[in-house]
Design a binder for these strands. Structure first.
Lengths: 320, 320
DNA sequence: TCAAAAGTGTTATCCTTACACCCATGT
DNA sequence: ACATGGGTGTAAGGATAACACTTTTGA
C-alpha cells in the first residue's frame, strides 16, 4: 500500500516490538518467512509484526497498530508506547521500497499469554526470540569479551586514527575512561552499522558474517529493536514498567533477574531489595515459592496503588 | 497536499517547536495569520511553523523539517530532536482536514540570531512569543495561585465525585499528598482539554474564555508545544541542553535563571552552583559582567570537551 | 554608606555502595 | 550435615537540602 502523491510515493508503516519474558530472558515476537529459519537464519531473516496504516480503517495510529498485531500474530496488546518515527529507510539498499516512513512501537506483555507459534495469516510463522540473538554484545552479565575480542579490533581498524571515530567508539562501548551505558543500544548498533560490521550494512544483503554480530533482520527492523531495548532499559529506572512483564505473583529474586536480564547487567542483591522496599513497589503475599533448591522465597506482587500515589518512581539501577 | 489512497486521504505534516531565550524567558517561534493578533488573539490564533512532507523533495524527515522552517521563517535550525508522532488530530472539530498525521520536532537556538519579525513567504507574520502565554499555569516561580484559584474549582466540578478523575487531577497538579512535577506539561493540558477548560476543546472554536486558560493555538499545536515543554524540562536533567539556548559566555546566575525559567520553578543557589562545579559543566573566562547593579559576576562558558568525556550528565534540579 | 547581587562555609540527612553474615530448606 | 539460595545488619562515602554568612560593586 503506497500513497500516490504525484510522481513519487511513500508508505506509512507501523512496526511493533512486542516484548515478553520467557525463561528469564527478554523475548521479542517475530515473523519468520520461508527460508532456513534455523539457528543461523541467513536468507529468511526475521521481521517485526508490521503493516501499512490505513486511515480509512482506523481512527488513531495506536488502534491501527493493535489491530495489525492481533491480525498478524493473534496476540492482543496491553502496554503500548510509541518509540520513534523513522524516515530514512532508504539508506538500506536491500529493499525495493524507496520511501517508507515507519512508526515504531514498544509493547509489553506478561509471559502467561505469550505462547509460542500461533501463526497468523500473513504468510509467516510467528515466534518468540531471545532479543540477545540479535544483539549478543548487549548482554554483559556473564562475559564482556565480545566487545573486547570481536568488536574493538575491527572498530580500531575502521577508525584508523580518526580522533572523532575513536572518541565515539569509546563512548558507545565504555572503553578507556568511559563506562558502559546500557541504554546506548541504538548508538552502538548505528556505530557498528556505520563501520560495516553488521550484515544489514553490507552490500551482499543479509548474509551473516560472524557469530558475534547477531542475527540480521529485515528492513531496518533491527534498528527499531535497538531503539526499543534502549527505551525499555531507560524507562526501568524511572517508571515501574518491569511489572508489565512479570506474572501476578513473583519472588524478589525473580524480579531482580528480570531486571538484570533486560538491562544486561548484574545488580547488588541487598541494594536492589532495599530499593524495592523503600519505594514500596511490592506487597508481600501469604504463600511462598518452593521451586528451586534452597530456602523458599516469599511471594510478592506489584502494589498497583502505587501508580496513584507516586507517579514517577521506577528502579534506578546501581552497580553490581 | 494530501495523499490519495482509495476513498479517504491523509496528510503527513511536520511541525517545529523552535525555542530560544529572550529576556530570560523561553520563547517559541510562531506564525500569526491575519485577524487581531494582539493581546487576546481570538480569531487569528497562532500556529507553529509546519508543512507537508514531500518525499520527492527530501530524503529524510529532518531535512524536510529544516527546509520547511527556513522557508517559512527564514531561520536556520541548529539542535533538532523528534518529539512524537500524533495521529488523532481528528478529535479537533475545528479543522476541515480529516486525517492528519503530524510529526512534532523540538529545535533549540541561541538568542543572538533570534530576531523578531522576519516574516517568510507563506502568508503570516513570524513572531517570538513567551511560551507561558499559552500555559500560564506552568510558571510556578512567582505564584501558584492560578492552579488553586482558577483551575481546581472547575476541575472539581468536572470530576463531580469520580474517584478516578479526582486522582488524575491530584497527580497532574500536585494537589494533596502529591507534588508538582514540572515535566507533566502534556498530562495537565490533556486533562484540562478533557474537562473542557481550554478553548480548543470547546465547540465554539478558538474563542478564549478566561484569562487564565492561556492563548489558544491552531489545530493541535498547543498539544505539540506542551509535549516540547515537557521534553525539554525532562532533558535538562540528564543532558546539557540548556547550553544550546545560552550565548557563548554567560554568568552562573544567568544560567540558573534560564534553567528556572524553563522548568518554571526556583532553585537553591548554592546547590545549583555546586552541581555545575561538580559536573565541571562550565569553565571560567577572564572577563566579568557588569550589567546589573550589584557585584559583577565572572563569565563562564560551556565546556564543550565535556560532551566527549561524560555523555549523560545534565542538571538534575533539586527543590528551591 | 547602603542596597543589590555575587559568592562561600558548614551541617544534618539521606542515598549509594559494599562488606559480611545468618536463616530455612531439600538432598 | 551441607550445599543452595533467601534474607538481613551495619558502616563508609558521597550527594542533597538548607542554614547563614562574607565580598564586591553601583548609586
Amino acid at each position: 500500500m503506497r500513497q500516490k502523491t504525484g510522481d513519487k510515493s511513500f508508505a506509512l508503516s507501523l512496526d511493533a516490538v512486542l516484548v515478553a519474558m520467557r525463561d528469564n530472558l527478554p523475548h521479542v515476537l517475530l515473523i519468520e518467512e520461508g527460508g532456513a529459519a534455523g539457528a543461523a537464519g541467513a536468507a529468511g531473516a526475521a521481521r517485526l509484526p508490521s503493516g501499512t496504516f490505513r486511515p480509512e480503517r482506523h481512527r488513531t495510529l495506536e488502534a491501527a497498530l493493535r489491530a495489525l498485531v492481533s491480525e498478524q500474530t493473534s496476540h492482543a496488546l496491553d502496554y503500548v508506547e510509541q518509540l520513534y518515527t523513522f524516515g530514512d529507510r532508504g539508506r538500506l539498499k536491500t529493499s525495493a521500497e524507496e520511501n517508507v516512513i515507519s512508526i515504531g512501537y514498544l509493547a509489553l506483555t506478561k509471559t502467561e499469554s505469550a505462547e509460542n507459534s500461533g501463526g497468523g495469516g500473513s504468510g509467516g510463522e510467528t515466534r518468540w526470540r531471545d532479543w540477545y540473538r540479535f544483539f549478543p554484545w548487549e548482554d554483559r552479565r556473564r562475559s564482556r569479551e565480545i566487545v573486547e575480542a570481536e568488536i574493538v579490533p575491527p572498530l580500531r581498524r575502521w577508525a584508523c586514527g580518526s580522533a572523532d571515530r575513536i572518541a565515539r567508539a569509546h563512548l558507545c562501548f565504555g572503553l578507556e575512561e568511559t563506562v558502559w551505558d546500557e541504554e546506548k543500544v541504538l548508538e552502538r548498533y548505528e556505530l557498528l552499522f556505520e563501520a560495516g560490521l553488521v550484515s544489514e550494512a553490507r552490500r551482499g544483503g543479509l548474509a551473516r558474517a560472524e557469530a558475534w554480530d547477531g542475527a540480521p533482520m529485515r528492513h531496518d527492523h533491527r534498528r527499531i529493536l535497538a531503539t526499543a531495548m534502549g527505551r525499555l532499559r531507560g524507562k526501568l529506572k524511572y517508571r515501574p514498567v518491569v511489572f508489565e512483564l512479570m506474572p501476578e505473583s513473583f519472588t524478589l529474586s525473580e524480579l531482580q533477574s528480570a531486571v538484570e536480564a533486560i538491562a544486561g547487567i548484574t545488580l547488588h542483591k541487598q541494594n536492589f531489595r532495599r530499593l524495592i522496599e523503600r519505594e514500596r513497589l511490592v506487597e508481600r503475599l501469604s504463600g511462598s515459592a518452593r521451586k528451586t533448591r534452597g530456602r523458599p522465597a516469599s511471594l510478592v506482587r506489584f502494589r498497583r496503588a502505587l501508580l496513584a500515589e507516586r507517579p514517577r518512581l521506577g528502579l534506578r539501577l546501581g552497580k553490581g
